[in-house]
Structure formats: structure tokens, C-alpha cells
């Protein structure tokens, strides 16, 4: 995957992550609703990387599968990791002062959602939305 990269450490970086994702979604030919779903999911994940993961990096690029084109985005951090994934996915579960919607919501907004995490091992989340 040819990659765009965005360092994630601040509010402004989350906005940058949204813009990079939008540009790729347009390039991939995603419909407007699909673009919006992907960009919203990435906004949630990138914010989690900044707030819960202590910062990290986003990589994004186009992916192809036969005739299909999609956008793949990875948010990676070296933070505390997620001990209880099932709970993290639950709407309303938060260890901060959010609504606890971001993580579970992001999963609903994409086609593929892959998490690698362990306590003390950081968190890497990769999502794909296909056109």
C-alpha cells in the first residue's frame, strides 16, 4: 500500500487525519456517504490515538481487490493498550470523559476492522472501507 502518513499528537493532527482520509476516499471513487462514514470513523480512531494512546501515527492509502478499490487507514500507538476489547466496543463505555461511542461507532462505519492490542503493548487499528 502506497502510504500517506500523519503524525498524531494533537487536535490539529486529528483534523489533518480527516483531510488525508477524505482526499483518498475521493481518489478511490467512494460515494459521498461512504466517504463520510470512513472519515468519521478515522476521526474517532485518530482522536483515541491522541487521547488514550498518548499519540501515534496514521498511515493511509488505497487498496485494490479485483475490481474493487478501497481506502485502508491504520492508527498506531505505543500507549497502554486496551485490556478489555469487548468492553471498549460497547457503546457508552469510556475510561475518559467521552461518550464511549467512538470505538464501537467506528467499527460500524467501516467494512473491515482489525485491532491488535495488549496491555502495555500499544494499539494498532486498521480499517478499510470499500467503494
Amino acid at each position: 500500500m502506497s502510504g500517506d502518513e500523519v503524525a498524531l499528537s494533537s487536535d490539529e493532527d486529528v483534523v489533518r487525519a480527516r483531510h488525508v482520509t477524505r482526499r483518498l476516499a475521493v481518489e478511490a471513487g467512494l460515494r459521498l456517504v461512504d466517504q463520510t462514514k470512513l472519515v468519521t470513523a478515522v476521526s474517532e480512531l485518530a482522536r483515541n490515538t491522541v487521547i488514550h494512546g498518548g499519540g501515534g501515527v496514521l498511515t493511509a492509502g488505497l487498496v485494490h481487490d479485483g475490481p474493487r478499490t478501497g481506502v485502508r487507514v491504520t492508527c498506531q500507538d505505543e500507549g497502554p493498550g486496551i485490556a478489555d476489547l469487548d468492553r471498549a466496543f460497547q457503546d457508552g463505555y469510556t475510561t475518559g470523559n467521552g461518550l464511549g461511542l467512538g470505538f464501537g461507532g467506528a467499527r460500524r462505519l467501516v467494512h473491515d476492522f482489525d485491532v491488535r492490542t495488549a496491555p502495555g503493548q500499544g494499539t494498532t487499528i486498521t480499517v478499510v472501507r470499500w467503494g
Binding site: T36, K37, E44, L101, G104, G105, L109
Partner: peptide, 13 residues
Amino acid sequence: RPAVAITLVELGL
């Protein structure tokens, strides 16, 4: 916008 509204619902907000 319609696309935003649709996404919000799916997000759970």
C-alpha cells in the same frame, strides 16, 4: 447534510 445525518445515526449519536 444528508450524508452527515446518515453517518451520525450509524455512529450511534
